[in-house]
Nucleic acid binder design. Structure first.
Lengths: 141, 141
DNA sequence: GTCTATGCAAAGCTTTTGCACCACT
DNA sequence: AGTGGTGCAAAAGCTTTGCATAGAC
């Protein structure tokens, strides 16, 4: 299992590959994303960084940048608010996410492939899917 | 297969069951939802009703009312915007939705049950799920 | 007549954009 | 030095709320 530092180095080298600059806010945000083991909103990330440290806009812009670079993914929620988390290499999975605290567990199985095939036969291309379960975790009940 | 009128009567009797009033905007919105065979945003529904006819706020409020009454469901999309469509009785399904025109096809298979069981074992309750596929339909390509 | 639904205006919340300045490379 | 990132301010987009009036029952 890769340490926090390894993951950070890895993410940083991804940025370099795309000629993106390594700045203080980016390092701080990546480190936070790596250390936090649940999806967080831009606002939550901003707060966790110490709200006055960096601008919320910078957090949004960097999350977008990271997403395009394949470093993080954005999870759209029931409410429309986005949650962000580090991408776990190639692995494809989904979550069960607590509506209250955003605690999340990963769910390995994904049987969406068959559905994607059906969608392809229906004439759709560029297919992606959103699959997330929502519930209330034990602590929040 | 139930006719438009039957479906409308059915929806109206659902409203009555909940002591909700049968108003012009509600009838028009229900009729539109029944006749339109793809999920639409509040804004799109408002426009389709003739933007000046009823207020957009009324559309929002009634969609929320209908959702609580189990008459329509709200589909959260990748972008966070919500789409609405009539509930198809007890049947559970998902969609493949065109990112551009919102054309949608229903997908019958749903293997989420296993995932919900896993989530339950993880201590989550009140579990719901969001599963939608997104793509670009033939016409929009 | 009562109480709910509507319209209008305004605010709320998340996210995006413009622009001047700063700093990574 | 040059390009790309940041902060601040402002706007944009979708949705919700407050309040007085109109309308369903």
């Amino acid at each position: 299992m890769a340490s926090t530092d390894n993951k950070l180095e890895n993410a940083i080298s991804n940025l370099k590959k795309e000629s993106l600059r390594i700045t203080e806010p980016r390092k701080a945000l990546l480190k936070l994303l790596i250390d936090t083991h649940k999806p967080l909103s831009a606002e939550e990330l901003h707060e966790a960084l110490g709200s006055e440290q960096y601008d919320l806009v910078t957090v949004y812009r960097n999350l977008e940048t990271f997403e395009k670079a394949g470093i993080v993914s954005r999870i759209p929620t029931e409410s429309g608010k986005g949650l962000y988390e580090m991408n776990d290499e190639q692995k494809h999975y989904h979550h069960i996410i607590c509506r209250h605290c955003h605690k999340a567990e990963k769910l390995d199985e994904c049987h969406i492939h068959e559905l994607e095939e059906i969608a392809t036969k229906l004439g759709f291309s560029n297919i992606t899917h959103v699959l997330e379960l929502y519930g209330v975790c034990q602590e929040c009940r």
